[in-house]
């Protein structure tokens, strides 16, 4: 055997991914350094453009808010999963996974209907804040966040579930035997020990949120520009490949850093893997 073991079997997949994914990315990186001559012009243009600065900030802001929302809703679901009987756990995870495996278009379509002016959600939100006017939920950042949280929620559920399910019951029993009230056991033992799951879920959701494209486009109605929208605009409308490439590389770098962090703290996968299209 002169070639390293396993390489022959790996070859078809590696070839496919390299030719169709890695090489195009490298070519994109090349484009970001100028179409004809080597320059950082595109990057200068990118950061010089006030509009892009705003887009970058908005992308970060929305993604951060989405992560907070995912954790606030996802932690309790992960908690309930972890402390359920196996049968109830199986049923509940199916209920979490069902939307996960539903086309993002179906969900966005539903949210447009639910969130639009005079729709169910906006009138309900109106009564909540005590105004008889419906609250504007669609075609703004709120709508985008709702749609993104809806898509990314499972990303925060399963890491939390794994972290909680891995905890020894005896730790909680020990805390209780030392005089901690049930709620105190949670705040002093269970929650701190699930930190890794929280971080992992947050990083995963954040990394995915940064690249969201369909949801901002549909629920933002062209008014909520995020990084991905900017990139596609540059390609499709302005044919400004260097600028699109530069923006892509910035996004790529941000996601790669987050994913590297995630890999450090987490070693698990969602059932069937993460479904990252949004």
């Amino acid at each position: 055997m002169s070639t390293p073991r396993g390489l022959g079997l790996l070859a078809p997949a590696l070839l496919l991914v390299c030719v169709l994914f890695i090489v195009p990315l490298v070519r994109l990186a090349g484009l970001s350094l100028g179409e004809t001559t080597l320059s950082l012009h595109a990057y200068a243009e990118l950061f010089g453009a006030w509009s892009y600065g705003g887009i970058l900030l908005r992308t970060l802001r929305i993604s951060a808010a989405v992560v907070v929302g995912c954790l606030l809703l996802g932690y309790p679901i992960g908690y309930v999963l972890a402390f359920s009987t196996p049968r109830r756990r199986a049923l509940l995870s199916l209920l979490v996974l069902l939307p996960f495996w539903t086309s993002v278009l179906v969900r966005n379509f539903a949210w447009i209907y639910l969130l639009r002016d005079g729709g169910v959600a906006s009138s309900f939100a109106g009564t909540l804040v005590g105004s008889d006017q419906p609250v504007q939920l669609l075609y703004n950042e709120i709508g985008v966040m709702i749609g993104m949280i809806n898509t990314l929620l499972p990303f925060s559920v399963f890491p939390v579930f794994v972290a909680l399910a891995a905890q020894e019951r005896t730790l909680r029993e020990a805390a209780a035997s030392l005089g901690a009230s049930p709620a105190r056991v949670f705040w002093t033992v269970t929650l701190p020990l699930s930190r890794a799951g929280i971080y992992a879920g947050a990083l995963l959701a954040f990394a995915t949120a940064l690249g969201f494209f369909i949801t901002p486009a549909l629920l933002g109605g062209g008014r909520v520009l995020m990084a991905a929208t900017f990139i596609t605009q540059q390609v499709e409308e302005f044919l400004n490949w260097p600028l699109a490439a530069a923006a892509s590389l910035i996004l790529l770098a941000a996601v790669m850093i987050l994913v590297a962090l995630y890999r450090r703290i987490a070693a698990f996968n969602l059932p069937g893997g993460e479904h990252a299209a949004g």
Binding site: C18, F21, P24, L28, L210, V235, S248, A277, G278
Partner: peptide, 19 residues
């Protein structure tokens, strides 16, 4: 290499492949 399509933003992949 093989897992990168899972983690990297699809929109970047789409633009790159489109090119």
């Amino acid at each position: 290499i093989l897992m990168s399509p899972l983690f990297l933003p699809t929109v970047v992949a789409a633009v790159a492949i489109y090119g």
